[in-house]
Design a protein around this nucleic acid. Structure first.
Lengths: 165, 165
DNA sequence: ACGAGCGGTTGCAAAACACAAGCGGAAGGG
DNA sequence: CCCTTCCGCTTGTGTTTTGCAACCGCTCGT
């Protein structure tokens, strides 16, 4: 379980696939990035896809091992918080493109689309703002300014779309 | 085997994960898009990750079933050509972001990086040009202009990087 | 008739996945 | 103290997917 076992190739796309190319890793990361879930139970019980606890435990371990998440302490029996690392935060553009593609080419819910639409329309400037926000929340320095956050706007778009549907 | 079995959710990101979120689908598509491989044996024997023939057969079937590829005829014993569909061509921005991420955050080969770097620097204008090129090659209308193609430039970049390493 | 090339299939073992149940530690209340 | 609740998982079971190697029927050029 310990180690990265020989990459299949040195292709950057293959590297990405090896890091999170399975049916759950991106879903977990999505819930942390967009859903602001940072604890095991939160991730499990609020999962719309219904992830099983053993799979979640395994993915969290792997994502920590591969440097996409960090796990903050917690002695047994206590809440352990997961945080995004800089590499994980830089997945935002990947998520945006995946979301844009999904909206265009698969049947999806307009409510769940709303955040993706907003990010697409906001363009790279909005992505960067969101990434800065994630850095503030996940990489120390939890202080700093408070204007309506990008995630709050994304959630507002979701709720508005959910209400009207 | 026939049908799309109930999506786990209507989230656009989940839709993308369900369509090609496994260890091989994106690799196969990458080889078709960037490597210009359109036949089974080409895909199998030139695969740098070494895909097994049964996995390749299964992925091609699935990608056809989910509308990302088309398979042109071929009675048994004859070459069957696979072509990208419009949804698959629109994965180019996804590939670009995955490649950018891989370069930045994983150990990769500078030769295999070169095309990704070029696409990143070229920006959306170059992506669109490449997508138009793919449309010409894969969606009928195989005619039209001939300036040095984007893929040729990507390959040139790869070869240059491979030589000097 | 023959060999090479074509797109696969088959069998088998190992790994990953899904589902349900349970577990030891910690925290809160009576 | 005891009891309940919540915490992050682990365990056990059966099913599905993967990886590896061998093999198959067909067609085409010679």
């Amino acid at each position: 379980m310990g180690g990265a076992s020989e990459p299949r190739s040195e292709c950057p796309i293959n590297a990405a696939v090896e890091a999170f190319g399975d049916r759950w890793s991106l879903i977990v990361l999505r819930d942390i990035v967009f859903g602001d879930r940072r604890y095991f139970r939160e991730l499990q019980t609020n999962s719309i896809e219904g992830i099983a606890s053993n799979i979640l435990a395994d993915r969290l371990k792997r994502l920590v091992a591969s440097g996409l998440l960090t796990r903050e302490d917690a002695r047994p029996g206590q809440r352990a918080r997961y945080s995004l690392t800089e590499p994980a935060i830089q997945l935002v553009p990947v998520f945006v493109q995946l979301g844009s593609w999904g909206i265009r080419h698969r049947p999806t819910s307009s409510a769940l689309n709303a955040p993706a639409v907003l990010l697409e329309q906001g363009g790279p400037a909005l992505w960067r703002e969101f990434m800065d926000e994630l850095r503030r929340e996940h990489l120390g320095s939890e202080l700093l300014a408070r204007s309506p956050s990008v995630r709050e706007r994304l959630n507002a778009a979701y709720l508005a779309a959910a209400d009207s549907s």
